[in-house]
């Protein structure tokens, strides 16, 4: 029994002599800068941003609005070229390449003419992955996230929370390893939101994927993440890197612990300072 676990273990972490060479991070962002020129006025959006998502790590970015988080996602996703810097995934350079990440946008953005099942399968379809097995897996997962009976429904028939769960599943079942979640819960009401946070926490701990998560919500970031990058206002840069010490599996109760509250107060203060700074520079 113990031998078996040892073998399983060895597939994820190389034991013995090769331990000196750890697996390359799922995502490494190095020195990314980006500016836009509009009517001869140059606006710097990102300034020398570096961050890292190790294999099977949940990493969050929090920052004031307009800190260039979405631009960063576009650059990682290959929609835009950075002015400087590189993006690597699993050790290989992928700056400006598309199709390397699994993306979950702010709005569910499910395709209204596709059934929920076909929506969930689209990422694999685009990549040309055989669909028969994927379809079975999708059905299994849809049932698991409480969407059984809705496989053949169209997105407009679902509530906001259900649509978001389907959109998450679409990202989860995508063939790409790294998931980018762009404020996935910001459009939901408070109650649905906390429910979705709990749901995501459980799901992620069961099924560890490398995740980069953007949010405005500090509590959400603290609850879910291994590490948080606090961004400054425009131009966005990494102000603080905070490792979150809480052990896994986490439960929602940790949000009441003194350490959690302390961290929350610290992060809130940084955010408030940044918000004020960007407000004064604007005004």
């Amino acid at each position: 029994m113990s031998e078996e676990t040892q073998i399983q273990h060895s597939t994820t972490e190389t034991p013995g002599s090769s331990q000196a060479v750890p697996a390359p991070p799922a995502l490494e962002v190095k020195g990314i800068s980006k500016a836009y020129t509009e009517r001869r006025r140059v606006t710097s959006v990102l300034n020398n941003v570096s961050l890292k998502v190790e294999q099977q790590e949940f990493v969050s970015i929090v920052g004031p609005s307009g800190c260039g988080k979405s631009t960063l996602f576009h650059i990682i996703g290959g929609l835009e070229q950075p002015d400087a810097g590189t993006i690597s995934m699993n050790g290989s350079l992928v700056t400006g390449q598309r199709g390397e990440i699994s993306y979950m946008p702010q709005q569910p953005a499910l395709f209204p003419w596709r059934t929920i099942e076909d929506n969930v399968l689209i990422a694999g379809e685009i990549k040309g992955v055989p669909q028969d097995q994927a379809r079975e897996e999708a059905r299994h997962w849809l049932a698991k996230v409480g969407l059984s009976g809705f496989e053949r429904a169209y997105p407009h028939m679902l509530s906001g929370g259900m649509q978001q769960r389907a959109a998450f599943l679409r990202a989860l079942l995508a063939p790409q390893e790294l998931m980018l979640l762009d404020e996935p819960f910001s459009a939901l009401d408070a109650l649905t939101r906390s429910e979705m946070q709990r749901w995501l926490l459980e799901l992620w701990e069961e099924n560890r994927r490398s995740v980069l998560f953007i949010t405005h919500n500090i509590e959400e970031a603290l609850l879910l993440s291994n590490r948080i990058y606090v961004f400054s206002g425009r131009p966005g840069s990494v102000l603080h890197t905070v490792d979150i010490p809480f052990p896994r599996p986490r439960r929602e109760e940790i949000t009441d612990s003194p350490e959690f509250l302390l961290l929350k107060r610290q992060l809130s203060q940084w955010m408030r300072e940044e918000q004020e700074k960007s407000a004064t520079t604007k005004g």
């Binding site: 576009h74 996703g77 290959g78 929609l79 598309r98 199709g99 390397e100 990440i101 699994s102 993306y103 946008p105 702010q106 709005q107 953005a109 395709f111 689209i122 990422a123 379809e125 685009i126 990549k127 995508a174 980018l180």
Partner: peptide, 21 residues
Amino acid sequence: DGIMLNYMKMAGAGKWQIFTK
């Protein structure tokens, strides 16, 4: 829709896939 278009591009869809899907 612009968001869906971005989604398709990030997922690695080509011009033809964007057109048909």
